[in-house]
């Protein structure tokens, strides 16, 4: 009878010195990094107290005191969300087509990819600060911010979806002697449409949340109202605003996931 032969899966890093060295380096770094964090425990205790006041306020949110401001902020935010999503999607589709390597001319491809890279390289808040400086406080800056963010997100994912499209179907449509736009409409669109609709709905959802964030740096909307409330220590008003935001996000998320299922 042959001897039992041991087997274990090959390790990720074959060289044992390198392997254990890497593990050791990670642990050492973690210890040093944790050691470098300075915690002011007195401040934490004070902050906990303020945190409790906040939690307490959540139990009795005050919708009435600043109701007109809340309504204005909400209206601004929702307007910003919808207009920026429409503008962003409208611009994303041509840019996404241009950024798909399998259907675009190489020069167009590079230009569109560069555009996407730029719009993705900054977080929304930073773009918002830039636009507030350019066009002043208010929802227009928010609209521009969210549009740019939508372009970065949507055209990149659309382009990637187009690049994953079945080349056989693309080739077959091209073989009929059609023009470029017909090729897009018959070969590409049917393949990417359900996902594109899903992404648009998902982005609408994200954009509403973004509209609340960019308000904090002065780009209008419910974020501005929220910021003011917190600055005035009106935690009950802030709680009311947050509850409304949560409710709207949940409704948006639920309905967009229903719609996405439907378009598959």
């Amino acid at each position: 009878m042959p001897a039992a032969r041991a087997w274990s899966p090959p390790p990720l890093i074959a060289n044992p010195w390198l392997r254990w060295g890497a593990y050791g380096a990670v642990v050492l770094y973690l210890v040093l990094a944790l050691g470098s964090i300075e915690v002011n425990w007195a401040r934490v205790v004070a902050g906990l107290e303020r945190g409790w006041a906040f939690v307490g306020a959540f139990l009795r949110p005050d919708f009435a005191a600043r109701w007109p401001e809340i309504v204005d902020g909400m209206r601004e935010s929702l307007t910003m969300t919808v207009t920026a999503t429409v503008a962003g999607v409208t611009l994303s589709v041509p840019i996404g087509l241009g950024a798909a390597r399998n259907i675009a001319h190489p020069a167009v491809y590079l230009a569109c990819r560069a555009l996407i890279a730029v719009s993705r390289s900054f977080q929304e808040v930073i773009i918002a600060i830039l636009f507030v400086a350019m066009v002043g406080f208010g929802p227009f800056a928010g609209f521009l911010t969210i549009s740019v963010a939508t372009i970065g997100f949507l055209s990149k994912l659309l382009a990637e979806d187009i690049e994953d499209a079945d080349p056989g179907q693309l080739e077959a449509v091209r073989a009929t002697g059609c023009g470029w736009w017909q090729w897009i409409v018959y070969g590409v669109q049917p393949q990417v449409m359900p996902r594109l609709i899903g992404l648009c709905l998902y982005r609408l959802d994200i954009n509403f949340r973004e509209s609340a964030v960019v308000g904090i740096v002065g780009a209008g909307g419910i974020g501005a109202t929220l910021n003011t409330a917190i600055d005035r220590y009106e935690f009950d008003v802030a709680a009311a605003i947050l509850l409304i935001v949560i409710a709207i996000v949940m409704v948006a998320e639920y309905s967009s996931s229903r719609l996405r299922k439907w378009v598959q």
């Binding site: 056989g168 179907q169 080739e171 077959a172 091209r174 073989a175 009929t176 002697g177 070969g187 049917p190």
Partner: peptide, 15 residues
């Protein structure tokens, strides 16, 4: 190309 009809192994219909 209009005068050359092409037929494919995996059918290549637009699904």
């Amino acid at each position: 190309r209009r005068r050359m009809g092409m037929i494919f192994q995996e059918y290549a219909l637009v699904e």
